[in-house]
């Protein structure tokens, strides 16, 4: 195997080995970086996905090519039902492409890849577990109990829910549930983080707070983020790069780097350049809306 680490990764590896040797042996989540030549990198090569129906093969996604480097924040923007979620499912190994090559950590993907976190549109919390028990679930039985608890509490603290550790999902609001989801997904420090419209069901203010939390978490851990959304402003605010997908089947309409200071500052939302970016990206979405209306 070629041991070709990214310089940043090497530094991180050194820090970790000094910190805690056991942390490196955490099973699938924090494996020896040598196993992957390009940990965190996700590349799509002419990816296509179609489903068999009674009317024949229906293509959902077609000819998607994009290379997402490790530690970058990319949004996939597109109208509802265009196949954005399908794309994430492919990366997570929950579904398989019918065409093309998908590489996760630089390797052709088979099954559920290591070190990938997924936040779904709806909070996937287990109702019989408390917030803390939900957060520690991925590492339960894999590391000593005391350490597990400490790490869980640390994650809950990062999302500002330390006081709610013993509450069960039905005692949490929608925003709190998604915060618990973020805490759980960051517990394992995944190299790739997939988010499928995670804040879609939240009100505007909660949503802004959640976006800020997500960026804070991202700055510390630097996973490669693929953030699926149908909200143009959310994509522009959060991401370094936005890939707009067209409808029926999904193809890349535009692949744009949002060339502004990053991470963003709250004032960015209110400046002219922000609305210019939004207007620009929206123009790629508009034709598909029209087509939808005609159809």
């Amino acid at each position: 195997m070629i041991k070709n680490h990214h310089p940043g990764e090497m530094a991180e590896l050194k820090v970790r080995s000094g910190q805690n040797v056991r942390e490196q042996e955490l099973g699938r989540v924090e494996q020896d970086l040598g196993e992957y030549s390009e940990k965190g990198r996700v590349s799509f090569e002419n990816i296509g996905k179609s489903y068999k129906t009674v009317r024949g093969q229906i293509p959902i996604i077609s000819g998607i090519t994009a290379d997402l480097e490790a530690g970058t924040f990319t949004s996939i923007l597109g109208p509802s039902g265009c196949g954005k979620s399908t794309l994430l499912n492919l990366v997570a190994g929950l579904d398989h492409p019918t065409e093309g090559v998908l590489r996760v950590h630089g390797r052709p993907s088979r099954g559920i890849p290591d070190s990938v976190g997924f936040v779904f549109q709806e909070p996937a919390l287990y109702p019989w577990r408390t917030a803390l028990e939900n957060v520690v679930m991925p590492l339960e039985g894999r590391i000593p109990k005391a350490e597990l608890r400490d790490r869980g509490l640390q994650q809950l603290d990062r999302v500002g829910l330390l006081a709610c550790r013993d509450r069960r999902p039905h005692e949490l609001s929608g925003g709190m549930k998604q915060r618990v989801m973020l805490a759980r997904v960051f517990l394992t420090r995944p190299a790739v983080l997939l988010l499928d419209e995670p804040f879609g069901a939240l009100d505007a203010l909660t949503r802004e707070a959640m976006q800020a939390s997500l960026l804070d978490l991202w700055i510390c851990d630097r996973p490669t983020v693929i953030f699926v959304t149908h909200a143009v402003d959310e994509a522009v605010y959060l991401s370094q790069r936005v890939i707009v997908l067209s409808h029926n089947p999904a193809r890349v309409a535009t692949d744009t780097v949002i060339d502004e200071d990053y991470p963003r500052n709250q004032t960015f939302r209110f400046c002219q350049r922000f609305s210019d970016w939004c207007k620009n990206l929206h123009s790629y979405l508009a034709p598909s809306f029209e087509r939808e209306n005609v159809g």
Partner: peptide, 27 residues
Amino acid sequence: VLLRRSARVMGIHGTRYFTKVALPAAL
């Protein structure tokens, strides 16, 4: 389906799926 998929993504399968997801969910 959401809870099943979520368990898969977290790497919970085999015996762990029975004890951590299936049994408590069906309780």
